[in-house]
Amino acid sequence: MNKNNISIQKAQKKDYDELRKIYFNTRQESFTWEKHDSIKLEDFDSSTEGELILTAKIDNEIVGFVSIWEEDKFIHNLFVSSNFKKCGVGKALINQSAKAVGLPLTLKCVKANVNALHFYLSQGWTIEEEVAENEPYYLMKYEGINIFKK
């Protein structure tokens, strides 16, 4: 797969059915700490309400999305279809998020979501704070790629 085929654009209402499926399926597959019967298709709508949503497409197929609370430059959701993980989709979504709302970006990464944590750290995110609430998480920050980093 050619990573140059990834296009990022603002989500349209017509995209929401596909985005709901990505959100639902990815949570079912990856969120092992959640009860599967608590995960609903319509959770996407309440989880992204009022947020900027950008979609990632490869060959005109939606393969992922990011939702951002713009005022705080806070990434609330970043999901990539399992068939397209490790294809540069997440990185492309982060880069476009930075272009859309500016830096620094922040997000919460649930501690149990080890794969996501490793991904964010590999992309240059730093852990700013560890929070031990009901669902312990890391507050993470992204200030951009260091041009001197090899």
Score class of each variant (00 low, 15 high):
31 F>Q: 07
43 D>W: 07
136 P>Q: 12
81 S>W: 02
51 E>W: 02
53 I>D: 02
55 T>W: 02
26 T>C: 12
36 H>Q: 11
124 G>S: 03
5 N>K: 06
105 L>H: 08
66 V>Y: 08
102 G>H: 12
81 S>E: 11
94 I>T: 01
108 K>E: 15
93 L>V: 02
11 A>Q: 03
119 F>M: 15
114 V>I: 14
144 G>L: 05
100 A>D: 11
33 W>M: 08
144 G>V: 05
116 A>W: 05
53 I>M: 04
108 K>F: 12
95 N>L: 15
127 I>V: 14
21 K>E: 12
43 D>C: 07
12 Q>V: 01
27 R>D: 04
94 I>C: 03
84 F>Q: 05
23 Y>M: 07
44 F>T: 02
20 R>E: 09
55 T>R: 01
11 A>I: 00
35 K>W: 00
98 A>C: 08
114 V>Q: 14
35 K>D: 09
43 D>T: 01
136 P>M: 13
108 K>W: 11
88 G>M: 03
9 Q>A: 13
143 E>H: 08
75 I>K: 01
141 K>C: 10
34 E>P: 00
94 I>N: 02
10 K>A: 02
120 Y>W: 12
75 I>N: 03
132 A>K: 15
107 L>F: 11
45 D>R: 07
61 E>L: 14
96 Q>M: 13
68 I>K: 00
4 N>G: 09
127 I>H: 12
148 F>C: 03
95 N>C: 09
66 V>D: 05
147 I>L: 15
147 I>Y: 10
86 K>P: 01
64 G>L: 09
106 T>W: 10
138 Y>V: 03
27 R>F: 07
4 N>S: 00
1 M>G: 11
144 G>W: 10
89 V>H: 08
80 V>W: 10
107 L>R: 03
83 N>W: 05
82 S>G: 09
44 F>H: 00
8 I>T: 00
108 K>T: 14
50 G>D: 06
98 A>T: 01
137 Y>W: 01
109 C>A: 15
22 I>Y: 02
30 S>V: 10
126 T>Q: 15
72 D>R: 10
118 H>I: 09
4 N>Y: 00
5 N>A: 10
149 K>Y: 08
40 K>T: 02
121 L>Q: 15
66 V>T: 14
56 A>F: 12
132 A>C: 08
51 E>V: 02
88 G>A: 04
25 N>P: 00
120 Y>D: 03
97 S>Q: 08
106 T>F: 12
56 A>M: 07
70 E>L: 05
113 N>R: 04
118 H>D: 14
51 E>Q: 15
71 E>C: 00
103 L>F: 12
24 F>T: 04
37 D>C: 07
19 L>W: 01
133 E>F: 06
25 N>Q: 11
92 A>M: 11
49 E>Q: 15
67 S>H: 06
97 S>C: 08
28 Q>M: 14
143 E>K: 11
120 Y>G: 03
12 Q>P: 02
144 G>R: 08
126 T>S: 15
45 D>K: 06
34 E>H: 06
78 L>P: 05
82 S>N: 11
50 G>H: 09
149 K>P: 00
61 E>K: 15
105 L>N: 04
72 D>Q: 09
107 L>G: 03
9 Q>L: 01
137 Y>H: 13
52 L>F: 07
34 E>Y: 02
113 N>I: 09
